[in-house]
């Protein structure tokens, strides 16, 4: 009868522990999204501000801090995804034979399709990193520099989003992200033990607000380029060394 598991064994060995890990990593990723969105919106302040911000991120701590941040993010993301798979496999095994007549009384669409929206967000993140961080689709992106010799992130983003299909695909990805967060944000506090009635109701509403705000904020860059709110800058000086 006596329970044997304590501490880390509980955290990774039990379903409640696994959900705690999902909640903590999910919250960390949401905090990252908020800062990422804030950074993106600097594009509205013009190339100088945007490129200076991009440079400050990459050069912080002598260029080392960006790798620490990337490592931390990767750890959070990978843990979140790995735990999601582990839980999904367990949940599927818990009901090997489903109902002939399937019905849903209460569960939201967003809550039932977390694994689907999660996988789509994962696919988007891979494409997004390939697109801007690695420059897979256009290697020139990483060689562009502005008059100050900084990486011309502004030109890169404006060039990419001036293709309507690219911009549109980012908008679609943000809708999927919003669906993931509208359940994820409120759910994480429940997993972490929030049983307070009013706080749960407030967080449910806040969850919708956060999901919409993040999706809207992220869409402002691609939509802004498409609608001409964000203008391309003429390249007057060649990049150094070219």
């Amino acid at each position: 009868m006596a329970a044997t598991k304590r501490g880390l064994a509980v955290l990774f060995g039990s379903t409640i522990g696994a959900k705690t890990v999902m909640a903590v990593t999910g919250l960390a990723l949401i905090l990252f999204l908020l800062t990422h969105m804030g950074g993106n919106l600097l594009i509205y302040f013009g190339p100088d501000v945007f490129n200076a911000y991009a440079k400050s991120l990459k050069s912080a701590g002598g260029g080392g801090l960006v790798w620490v941040a990337r490592g931390g993010l990767l750890a959070m993301f990978a843990t979140h995804v790995a735990m999601a798979f582990k839980l999904q496999l367990r949940n599927r095994a818990a009901r090997p034979l489903g109902y002939a007549y399937e019905a849903t009384v209460e569960a939201s669409w967003a809550s039932r399709y977390m694994i689907l929206t999660g996988l789509l967000v994962l696919a988007f993140v891979v494409l997004h990193l390939a697109h801007y961080t690695v420059g897979v689709f256009n290697p020139d992106y990483l060689t562009w520099h502005d008059a100050e010799g900084r990486h011309d992130a502004y030109r890169m983003v404006v060039t990419a989003f001036s293709h309507p299909l690219v911009a549109l695909s980012y908008v679609v990805a943000m809708v999927v992200l919003a669906l993931h967060l509208v359940h994820g944000f409120q759910s994480l506090f429940r997993s972490l033990g929030n049983s307070h009635e009013q706080a749960r109701e407030a967080l449910s509403k806040a969850s919708l607000g956060l999901a919409l705000a993040l999706a809207f904020g992220f869409c402002l860059a691609p939509v802004g380029v498409l609608l001409g709110w964000i203008q391309p800058v003429e390249v007057t000086q060649p990049a150094p060394g070219k």
Binding site: A93, E106, S191
Partner: peptide, 8 residues
């Protein structure tokens, strides 16, 4: 299975 906070 684990809890997904569906509310069902």
């Amino acid at each position: 299975g684990a809890c997904t906070n569906y509310g069902e």
